[in-house]
């Protein structure tokens, strides 16, 4: 048989196959985007236009249920938002200006090299994460974190200046993370640091505070921090007097820690250097 004969036999087949495919597609679109949403919307008291838009993903919500509305006012615990321009600024700071601000404003308490003048009162800054320092400076300025000494100090700093000085202290490497770990005094604290406690819903400290863990960007470095400062902050989170941690991360953890665990954890991170 010649080519033409085959083509002749195939023609109705091609036509019908195409018609079936198009028909199934049309039936799918009609039922998914029109019939289902309109009837479900009717039962839920939603007008057909909104129901169709929701099924298409143009409007938020399900075509089968009314969309909840929130009338709550925004009351953020911190104004810091990690946008790309802020992250870029912290990664490429004005080093000279950062050093200048650090020397004139910060050095009296936090030390010229970022090491505290009085461990009982002021934390170390050397080697701290730039993101962590920036977040706290910004929170002092916006009032999200209350402190009699720091709030007046940062009042006149711009966002760029805060980023510069944060990056300055971050660049002062105090010690290397890879150094030998000192074991905790009790195995219980070692467990909280390394593996966490599932029964209490306590994630391991290291799941965020290890710089390579991939936790939240504003997580501070804890090692070689003064033990007084660490214990004070955990207690402040526990009592709720400090609440600028996004999504209650540290408040929900500190609430579950006993006073003895807080002291031991502070001691533990103080000893890592």
């Amino acid at each position: 048989m010649s080519e033409d004969v085959f083509r002749e036999i195939d023609r109705p087949w091609r036509l019908w196959a195409s018609a079936i495919v198009v028909g199934v597609l049309a039936f799918g679109c009609l039922s998914g985007f029109v019939i289902l949403p309109v009837i479900q919307g009717y039962q839920a008291g939603i007008d057909p236009y909104t129901a169709i838009c929701r099924s298409l993903g143009i409007l938020p919500g399900s075509p089968a249920a009314r969309q909840p509305v929130s009338t709550a006012p925004a009351a953020p615990v911190s104004q810091v938002s990690w946008g790309p321009s802020l992250i870029a600024r912290l990664n490429k700071p004005d080093a000279a200006r950062g050093q200048e601000i650090a020397a004139s404003v910060c050095a009296a308490c936090h030390g010229e090299k970022g090491l505290t003048a009085d461990p009982a009162q002021f934390p170390n800054m050397a080697g701290q994460s730039a993101f962590a320092i920036y977040k706290q400076l910004h929170d002092y300025k916006s009032g999200a974190r209350a402190n009699e000494i720091m709030q007046p100090v940062v009042a006149d700093l711009t966002d760029e200046q805060m980023a510069d000085v944060a990056a300055h202290f971050a660049a002062l490497q105090q010690a290397r993370w890879e150094q030998t770990w000192v074991r905790a005094a009790s195995p219980q604290v070692e467990t909280i640091v390394r593996t966490g406690d599932s029964a209490r819903g306590l994630p391991a400290c290291e799941s965020c505070h290890n710089p390579r863990s991939g936790g939240p960007i504003e997580t501070p470095v804890l090692f070689a921090q003064t033990k007084e400062y660490l214990a004070l902050q955990m207690q402040a989170f526990k009592s709720g007097s400090r609440k600028n941690d996004l999504y209650r991360r540290m408040r929900s953890i500190s609430e579950k820690l006993t006073d003895s665990e807080i002291d031991q954890l502070a001691q533990y991170y103080f000893e890592q250097r």
Binding site: S70, A72, A75, P76, V77, S81, R248
Partner: peptide
Amino acid sequence: PTKVHLSPEFTEAN
């Protein structure tokens, strides 16, 4: 996602 905590609906008190 960078402004979830600033949104009125997902503010901590809500």
